[in-house]
Write a protein that binds this DNA or RNA. Structure first.
Lengths: 203, 203
DNA sequence: AATATTCTTTACTTATTAGTCAACTAAATG
DNA sequence: CATTTAGTTGACTAATAAGTAAAGAATATT
């Protein structure tokens, strides 16, 4: 009952865009109002605070990333290590697309936000930690499949952290150098990072 | 001639601390004044803007990091790959120390700042890019030594980017999980990332 | 058609922000 | 000792910030 509206979605869309390519601190609620074509009262009708908007953005970012980058990469038909290679390839392409659309490589929204605010807001830190865990489930599963196929012997958790760390770090490098190719450049080295991990090669 | 003062140094010290463990947007000039024990007029006597303060902080961060983490790791007496292992070990210890001092793992100040502001301020992006280049010179040099010793065959630039990406990414993971050990956990896998890069192992 | 519900509008408050300015003080130099 | 130079003080501005509140408009339910 009552009145119908897509204002909430418009506000989230504006938040997703602006908090990503600028930052939390650089974007005001008024900025979001303007971009969403909404009055301030409407924002505070749907959200209790600016902080609540960022939590909604995180969920929206995750859905987008999961649908357009992660799920397509982790096709169980594909060989396990290649799934991870796909993740880096897809992420590189995804950042390239954003660069075309927005003029700059925006980096990883979770990493950006975590870098900016995780020491200030522990709930936010935990939320991002939680997103990272969901992310790593995909990696750990592929790595487990690789292990079952006899392709690696190291500790799954450690390799997961290493690969995920690499991914986040390279996305940041891509942002700072405004060059998405940096992410894809790891791909030739990825297999040896994964499969040789924990083994000291002879020599 | 004129009056003597260490106010500029006190302002920079306050900036180094606050911009690091909070963020650029979360720290006001007034905050810095309070912590430095200085009036606002003094800040604008030494600096043209808040932005100018962050540029001074970047230089101070670099000197600190270079002296306490990087230089000690890259001792030419030590075997090349081990220098890089030392870097990860020292960085892990360094973050642990900050965690003790400040209550939280603060992460990499350059990465934090780059994540927050590099899409908004291109001069800042370039400055951070420049710091990253100085950082990578150490890595590339150790990798070249390893190559000269016949320990690896891949492309130095790519491996440098990969290792540096890993480092930045793991520092961020350490921040989000408030656990500096994550950085050191890569060490057992580091040698194979470096030495096997570009080689597809048989199987 | 009356009513309850949901959403919108607009003007408002209170706090904080970066940055300015002119008077003032301390030290070094001539 | 007077003057110049370097740094300090604290009140000020103008803009922007997050958040509020009350009245009004659109829709579904009875």
């Amino acid at each position: 009952m009552g009145r119908k509206s897509n204002a909430k979605e418009r506000i989230i869309a504006a938040a997703v865009r602006n908090f990503w390519d600028r930052s939390y601190g650089s974007v005001s609620v008024d900025n979001l109002c303007e971009e969403a074509g909404v009055n301030k009262g409407s924002v505070y009708h749907f959200f209790t605070s600016k902080s609540a908007i960022i939590f909604a953005s995180i969920d929206a970012w995750w859905k987008d990333l999961q649908g357009s980058v992660i799920e397509p990469a982790f096709d169980p038909e594909i060989a396990p290590v290649q799934r991870i290679e796909n993740l880096f390839r897809n992420m590189s392409d995804y950042q390239k697309q954003k660069q075309r659309d927005w003029g700059k490589v925006p980096g990883c929204p979770f990493c950006n936000l975590g870098s900016e605010l995780s020491t200030k807001d522990d709930d936010l830190r935990e939320k991002i930690d939680d997103i990272f865990d969901r992310y790593k489930v995909y990696l750990a599963s592929a790595l487990q499949d690789a292990r079952d196929a006899g392709e690696l012997s190291g500790d799954i958790k450690n390799i997961t952290d290493a690969v995920f760390g690499c991914l986040c770090g390279l996305i940041l490098q891509a942002k700072i150098q405004d060059d998405p190719a940096i992410i894809a450049n790891l791909i030739p080295n990825l297999r040896s990072l994964i499969t040789n991990s924990g083994n000291n090669p002879p020599g």
